[in-house]
């Protein structure tokens, strides 16, 4: 018990001679302060990124390198996931729709699910794991090995060299990857529907076009753009503010993936409410 009290007192900086009972107000206050600190730091980082935009000679070449790594590097896993998502959506549509509603409705469900939800959300979640973890680990390692300080001490801006290229590359490449994911997902859904629903090509195309609105595509791209910001900005922030040592890098990486994923789900709900 005494050991537990000591551990809590160290974790939350509470004096050992403090009250026996849990002081919820104190914990709530500390949590609020922690949240406010992170929010303030993140806002400052965004401000620094905006201030670094005029240094385009520094960040443009690095953005191309990063965009290539994010785009080409993630293409295989994104397309694989989209293909399975399209196929499974089709199989489930077949299971639910057969004999109840016209089969061309299934084509609408498959295409709309992929364009509005599965394409952007699954791609963003994959990138949160693949790119977000990499960004947080890279920047975190650079922070603990003083490479970021070294860059600053050479009179170079770490924001223009490290952050702007990463944030911009991820934000621009995510919508591109989503377009590829949508196309491959719909195609695999189409092929699966032909097998499970016995739907003709004509009926599938008819159903897909019947429910399609050009706004859906814009919505999907707009959503991907916001997801792109979440997938890159959160890990960059976590990596940039990494604590000491290997444990700090590990925590930053895990925190980056979890926070970016939660933010994606939150943005998904918010944008659906605002834009649909």
């Amino acid at each position: 018990m005494a050991e537990e009290r000591w551990r809590l007192s160290q974790a939350y900086r509470i004096p050992l001679e403090g009250p026996e009972k849990l002081d919820l107000r104190r914990y709530a206050g500390r949590l609020f302060l922690l949240a406010a600190t992170h929010l303030g730091r993140a806002a400052y980082l965004v401000f620094e990124i905006i201030r670094g935009i005029p240094e385009w000679r520094v960040w443009v070449p690095r953005t191309w390198e990063q965009a290539y790594q994010v785009g080409v590097g993630s293409l295989f896993i994104v397309l694989l996931t989209a293909a399975f998502a399209g196929g499974v959506t089709s199989l489930q549509a077949g299971y639910q729709f057969t004999g109840t509603i016209p089969v061309y409705f299934a084509a609408g469900v498959i295409t709309q699910s992929l364009i509005l939800e599965l394409g952007p959300v699954l791609t963003a979640l994959i990138l949160a794991g693949r790119v977000g973890a990499r960004y947080a680990a890279e920047l975190g390692t650079m922070r603990v090995t003083e490479q970021i300080d070294a860059l600053e001490s050479l009179g170079r801006s770490s924001v223009s060299h490290l952050l702007i290229p990463r944030v911009l590359a991820g934000t621009l490449m995510l919508p591109v990857l989503v377009i590829f994911a949508d196309v491959v997902g719909i195609f695999s859904g189409w092929m699966a529907a032909r097998h499970t629903l016995d739907i003709s090509n004509y009926d599938f195309v008819y159903g897909a076009r019947y429910f399609f609105r050009p706004y859906d595509l814009w919505y999907s791209l707009l959503k991907s753009f916001f997801f792109g910001i979440a997938v890159t900005l959160v890990p960059c922030y976590m990596g940039f503010n990494t604590g000491k040592g290997a444990e700090g890098v590990g925590k930053a990486t895990t925190g980056a993936v979890v926070s970016a994923s939660v933010l994606i789900l939150f943005l998904d709900a918010l944008l659906s409410e605002l834009l649909l």
Partner: peptide, 12 residues
């Protein structure tokens, strides 16, 4: 100001 870091801090 040239700064020599404790562990080099070379960009790996």
């Amino acid at each position: 100001i040239g700064y020599v870091f404790q562990f080099g801090a070379l960009f790996d």
